[in-house]
Every structure is written in structure tokens, then in C-alpha cells.
Design a protein around this nucleic acid. Structure first.
Length: 581
DNA sequence: TGCGGCTATTG
DNA sequence: CACAATAGCCGCAG
């Protein structure tokens, strides 16, 4: 079907702007769409090396539907083919929101949407891949209601008729998920969250495909500052390692045999010097640094070792492309509270490497990070008006400190401690004052902790299920130790805040994506409370304003009518590390 | 070879 | 050194 034909077919089936259209992309078979009242449109038969997806682009331009996708795999395929959909309904992402956990293969997504037991999802046996579906006979759904394993795995051959069925099944699942979300009356923002989480999958697909601009020479010079210039071969690399080790060992008696990479041996070494430590973490070593010069040498060695191994030349070669983009795999929601995750160290890159993240020629970065997102989110989701009033300040720890009658640092520690589940330490006294000053917020947190400790599942503000029962990671299981219950309590206490913060952050990200895309700007990094947008220089100031406006828009979509103020620090810069451009 | 423990980095 | 994550190396079990 040609592009005008596609648009006509969908339009006459009643599909308009924002309406759901299931999209299936099957390499080697074709690309199809199902939408409206039983409309099926075959966008293209795939006879080339990969789908061109020009039909998708045409429908996107003419109708801008909400693309219903089985998973982010399709989003990545779309972005790779040069098509960037505006909005989506990602069945896997919505499944994770509704039912928790991370596994979201089609069989589970189908089963959960139909209220079937997840334990009974058919597993794909190796033999199934070779025995034809035609032998099995019948449709994709078994007598017991589960999706046939071969279908769920996509091993259904090259039939265009089956492509259509696969799209229609997606339509059905999406409708059921929507009904589920809408019926969750105690989570009125669940539908909006599902849309946003789906949009976040599109952001992730773009992050995965586009990558983060990084200047190779700048990065190599940072690395060289720690471990020397790039070794020519393995032998030279080994030589360099031995030399680094020797520098530390030179502070010891000659002939000392210590593997610095072995914490056990390091402890023994320190013990022989009369320095007893419970472990060899950096902060503990720093406490005994003046007892022997080897300690400082060891700390420097650790830093260089980190650069040499995790963030060294090998890391650069593996993840930094010839186009100067650092790429990792992005996930829209991790298995727990739903934050975004990224591989390739994109979320834990040492600050020292940030100067190497440089905007490309003619481009700038707009760097924006939210201030104190978690306590502000706590004020919203708990409905604590006193805490909401404190959020009226740019620095909300200042009014909290005044309220508690303690200094700012103590107030901050106490608030963070309340959200993390601290019970001891300097903040313990201030923690009790928090209970008095902000009883609503503190009650919200302790209820979450109690439920989690008891092994009961939680739901975030936006409706994400956080599994705490048997079978969940760290979930309740007999025999139960008090330590495990307490750990789960802290986990749950934090999950309801961190998870809600992640939901707000993703709404911000998808809003920014929607508002700045037309100016050629792209989000190139998401870091829990921070956005980095790569933008043509002439539009940088405009984009900075749109990022700020996008926060207000996101906050009011996330929590309509809230009085809690959210603040962002926004700057136009040419390097990620710059404070101002 | 796989996995838990330790360590370091980030928010 | 509380909450979350990724990642690498060591030491031990299989």
C-alpha cells in the first residue's frame, strides 16, 4: 500500500490524531498497522536488508497516532530507520508499570492483561522453533487463554496474515491495559503515567541510537593523566600496571608481595603496619592516612586503577563510536522503583571525564537539573502541606532547618535519612523533630516502610507496582530474618519517593522532547534529575526557556493543581562540566 | 564458569 | 556509607 493509501485507510477507519494504531515491524516480513474499526494496513513488504518504514513516516506526518508497540525493540527499529514517533503506548513499559518487575515478554504481557497466572505462561521449548506453527494448527491463543509460546517469541514465519494478527493482538492488549489503569481509582494519574512511561521508551530509543557527544582526544587526555598514554600492546599495558603497583609497594619493605587488587591482602598489609581497619574503603583509609605514607599512595593507586579498568582506553574503544558518540543501552524503568538505567557507565561516569563531553561544531548543550527533587516529590505524594510550604523556597532545607531548630546540614541529613530509612547517627535526634514538624510526610513514609516490611506490595504515586512479596527480589520469604524485613522496609520507604520522582522526571523528559524536537534539539543524556540537550547554537536560548517551561508543564500534568514548587538550574554550555556557556 | 563480596562511581 | 544503579576484580564453589 502506498503512503496516501495508508493514511486514507486509517482515516476512513476513524483513526485521528492521538488515536491508537498498533504497529508491528517484522524484519524480513513487513511492516503493518492496525487501528480504528478493524482497519489493517500493510505499510510495506520487507524484501530488503531492513525496513525503510517510509509508510510509518507518512502516517506519522499525516495523522500522528499513538503508536501501540509490543516493546522498545520496535522504537529502536523506528529510530534507526530515521522515524521518530511523537507518542506511543509501549505494552512492555505499561506492563511493568501495572504489574511490576522487569520481565515483559509478550507471553507475560498478554497473560497479565488477561488476568491469567504468570506462572502458567507457556515456555518456549527449543523444539517449538523448528516445528512449524502450521503443524500446531489453530490461532495464536491456546485453549487456556495463554499466548502460544511460538507466537510470543515471534517465531511465526513469514505470513503477512500473521503480521496482521500480531498487530490486532497488540490492540487488544492496549485496550485491556488502559481499562486496568482507568479502573485504578486510587491512582488517578496512572493513565497519564502510562503514556509518559511509553514516551520515555521513545526517549531511551533515541538515547540508545544517538549516543552522547564525547570528544575522543579530550577523553584520552583525561585518562592519560591517570594511567599514562595509550599502551601500544598488551605487554606495554602490563608493564604500566606493574609500574603503578611498584610505586605503592616502594613505600614498603623491599620484597613485600602484596596484590593491591585483593582487599584481603591489603588488610593484612595494613595490619602488619599496625593499622587495623574493618574494611579498606576509601573513606576509612583516609581516616588513617597520616599513619603511613603507603595509605595515600594506595588511595591514588585506586583512583588510577579505576580509570585504567572501568573508564580507560578499553571503555572508550568499546563505547565511543567513530562518530564521536558514546553509546550504551538505555532502559526506561529498572526492576524496582522505575528509574531509567543506562549501561556503558553513562550514569556513573566520573566527574573528571565530564569536560570531554563537548557539544559538536555549531551546537550547544542545555544542561538542566532539578533541585531537591525527592523532598519536593515527598511533599506532593504525601500531601504534607507544611513540607509543601517549605518547598516554596529555592533551598527547601533552609526553612526545614528553621522549623526544626537545627542547622541546614543536619536538616538535610534528617530529611534524606527519613526517606532512606536511617535509624542511627547524628540525624537521629533531628529525625524525631521531623516527626513532629511534618507528621503527614513522615507518616506516609513509615506506612510504606511497614507495608514493605510485612511483604505487601506497594504502588507509587503514578501507579507503578513495587513487588515486595514472595518471589520478588528481596521479597518476603520464609524463613524471615529481622534484618531482611528491615531492609525491605527501607527499600519500600525509599521506593515510593524515588519511584514518584522518576515518574515526574520522565514526564519532564518527554515534554522537553516534544517541545524542542522541532528546533533540531535532542536529549542526549538523562540522569535521574538532570537533562542534557544537544541543540543548534542559534536555538540554545530558546531551548533553555522551553526546558524551563517544560518543567512547569510536566509538574502540572504530573500533579494537577499542586502547590509544591519545583526548581531547575538551567544553563547553556559547551561542555557538560561547564557551569555557564 | 558462575556467583557473592568488595570497591568505586553516579544521582 | 541509610536508598537506587552499573561495572570490574578477587576468591571460592561446582
Amino acid at each position: 500500500m502506498d503512503a496516501p493509501g495508508l493514511v486514507d485507510a486509517l482515516t476512513s477507519a476513524g483513526v485521528g490524531r492521538g488515536d491508537p494504531v498498533a504497529l508491528v515491524v517484522k524484519p524480513g516480513v513487513g511492516t503493518g498497522m492496525a487501528g480504528g474499526a478493524g482497519a489493517w494496513a500493510l505499510a510495506e513488504v520487507d524484501d530488503g536488508p531492513g525496513p525503510s518504514l517510509s509508510g510509518v513516516a507518512a502516517v506519522e506526518a499525516a495523522l500522528r497516532p499513538r503508536w501501540v508497540l509490543w516493546s522498545a525493540e520496535t522504537s529502536v527499529a523506528l529510530v534507526r530507520a530515521g522515524t521518530r514517533p511523537a507518542i506511543a503506548w509501549d505494552l512492555a513499559a505499561v506492563h511493568r508499570l501495572l504489574f511490576g518487575g522487569w520481565q515483559a515478554d509478550a507471553g507475560r504481557v498478554w497473560a497479565a492483561a488477561h488476568g491469567l497466572a504468570l506462572e502458567a505462561v507457556p515456555a518456549l521449548r527449543p523444539v517449538d522453533l523448528f516445528s512449524s506453527l502450521d503443524d500446531a494448527g489453530g490461532g495464536p491463543v491456546r485453549a487456556d487463554g495463554h499466548l502460544r509460546a511460538e507466537w510470543a517469541a515471534g517465531a511465526w514465519g513469514e505470513s503477512l496474515e500473521r503480521l496482521r494478527t500480531w498487530a490486532e493482538l497488540a490492540q487488544e492488549v492496549a485496550a485491556r491495559q488502559l481499562a486496568h489503569l482507568a479502573a485504578m481509582t486510587d491512582r488517578p494519574m496512572a493513565v497519564a503515567t502510562a503514556r509518559s512511561e511509553s514516551g520515555a521508551e521513545l526517549v531511551c530509543a533515541e538515547l540508545t541510537v544517538d549516543g552522547l557527544p564525547m570528544d575522543r582526544a579530550a577523553a584520552e587526555s583525561v585518562i592519560a593523566g591517570y594511567v599514562g598514554p595509550r599502551p601500544r600492546d598488551e605487554a606495554e599495558a602490563a608493564e604500566r600496571r606493574v609500574a603503578r603497583d611498584a610505586e605503592v609497594l616502594s613505600h614498603l619493605a623491599p620484597g613485600a608481595e602484596v596484590d593491591l587488587r585483593s582487599t584481603a591482602q591489603v588488610r593484612v598489609l595494613l595490619g602488619r603496619l599496625g593499622i587495623e581497619v574493618a574494611d579498606t574503603r576509601a573513606w576509612r583509609l583516609r581516616e588513617v592516612q597520616d599513619r603511613h605514607p603507603v595509605v595515600a599512595a594506595l588511595l591514588d593507586w585506586r583512583k588510577a586503577e579505576r580509570m585504567g579498568t572501568t573508564y580507560g582506553y578499553r571503555w572508550l574503544d568499546e563505547h565511543l563510536g567513530a562518530d564521536g558518540r558514546l553509546r550504551g543501552e538505555w532502559s526506561g524503568s529498572d526492576g524496582a522503583a522505575g528509574r531509567m538505567t543506562a549501561s556503558a557507565g553513562l550514569h556513573s561516569m566520573p566527574a573528571e571525564l565530564r569536560p570531554a563531553v563537548i557539544a559538536e561544531a555549531g551546537m550547544s548543550f542545555v544542561r538542566a537539573d532539578l533541585g531537591q527533587i525527592e523532598p519536593r516529590v515527598l511533599a506532593v505524594v504525601s500531601g504534607d502541606l507544611a513540607l509543601a510550604a517549605a518547598a516554596g523556597e529555592d533551598d527547601m532545607y533552609a526553612p526545614v532547618a528553621a522549623q526544626l531548630g537545627v542547622d541546614r546540614a543536619t536538616a538535610k541529613t534528617a530529611v534524606l535519612g527519613a526517606m532512606y530509612g536511617a535509624t542511627t547517627g547524628h540525624g537521629a535526634q533531628a529525625l524525631r523533630r521531623l516527626e513532629t514538624a511534618y507528621p503527614v510526610a513522615m507518616g506516609f513514609l513509615s506506612r510504606a516502610a511497614q507495608q514493605a516490611a510485612a511483604g505487601r506490595d506497594l504502588r507509587t504515586y503514578g501507579g507503578r507496582l513495587v513487588r515486595m512479596g514472595p518471589g520478588a527480589p528481596g521479597g518476603a520469604a520464609a524463613p524471615e530474618t529481622p534484618g531482611a524485613m528491615a531492609a525491605r522496609g527501607r527499600y519500600g520507604r525509599n521506593a515510593v519517593v524515588q519511584g514518584a520522582a522518576a515518574e515526574l522526571f520522565k514526564m519532564w523528559a518527554v515534554t522537553v522532547r516534544a517541545r524542542v524536537g522541532g528546533l533540531g534539539a535532542r536529549i542526549v543524556l538523562c540522569l535521574h534529575d538532570e537533562l542534557l540537550v544537544h541543540v543548534p547554537r542559534e536555538h540554545a536560548d530558546t531551548v533553555a526557556e522551553l526546558v524551563a517551561a517544560g518543567l512547569d508543564e510536566a509538574v502540572h500534568r504530573w500533579a494537577p493543581g499542586t502547590a509544591v514548587r519545583f526548581v531547575a538550574d538551567i544553563a547553556v554550555v559547551s561542555r557538560w562540566s561547564d557551569a555557564k556557556g
